[in-house]
């Protein structure tokens, strides 16, 4: 759901860039004293993995595709604050090098995927322990709802820009992303299970 520049008005682009920058400063203060040198290669790997996995569009319904987002994956591995920078890094590279997502729309894309996506995942994972017994179901639901909330926010930004009415866009947008969210849940749970088996996860102090 990378938003191109043409879908957003200048005020919405500027506002979301402001919000995203402020949240970035907050995350910076949160991690600047805590980040461990030994984790940095694995953080960089996660950035590369999320980029690579985002290239893999899978078909949903007729004529539509979706792809992995990775916010929940990043939160599970390193917590929400490092996850913000991982997601933002991927989005910046995609916008600047691959023309995926607009330049001024970067604020909205960061807000949806790097902020809302990670916060929803963080909230559901930290509270989900009491709700779900199975870790896989907990991971699945966090990933699923991170996509739902991101697609809802995306609808709000596009409709606030006057491109289309909210009532016209949100139901289809969230509807199709409910299907993509199922893919997100399955991929996130599978990736974490694989990295656990390969003993990669045990080296970081994340959520799993």
């Amino acid at each position: 759901m990378h938003i191109p520049d043409g879908f957003l008005s200048i005020p919405v682009s500027a506002g979301t860039i402001g919000l995203s920058t402020a949240y970035g400063v907050y995350c910076h203060t949160k991690i600047k004293d805590r980040i461990q040198e030994k984790n940095i290669p694995l953080i960089a790997c996660s950035t590369a993995f999320i980029f690579a996995a985002q290239m893999l569009n899978f078909p949903v319904l007729g004529g539509t595709s979706g792809h992995f987002m990775g916010a929940t994956f990043a939160v599970l591995m390193f917590g929400p604050h490092i996850a913000f920078f991982i997601m933002t890094m991927v989005l910046l590279m995609q916008a600047l090098i691959f023309g995926d997502g607009g330049l001024l729309a970067i604020g909205a894309n960061v807000l949806n995927m790097a902020i809302a996506g990670t916060l929803v995942a963080h909230l559901l994972i930290s509270s989900g322990k009491k709700v779900f017994k199975s870790e896989n179901i907990q991971i699945f639901s966090a990933a699923f709802f991170s996509i739902i909330v991101a697609s809802l926010l995306c609808s709000m930004e596009v409709s606030a820009s006057g491109t289309i009415g909210f009532a016209q866009m949100a139901p289809v947008m969230v509807g199709v992303h409910a299907l993509i969210g199922i893919g997100e849940g399955l991929i996130t749970a599978t990736a974490i299970a694989f990295l656990k088996k390969a003993n990669v996860v045990s080296e970081v102090r994340g959520y799993v």
Binding site: A52, N57, F58, S65, H67, S151, I180
Partner: peptide, 18 residues
């Protein structure tokens, strides 16, 4: 990646039908 679906993604699809 060469085998990924080339159909429009969720947002593009919504933009197309709307």
């Amino acid at each position: 990646s060469p085998f990924a679906s080339s159909s429009p993604d969720g947002l593009e699809w919504v933009a197309e039908i709307k």
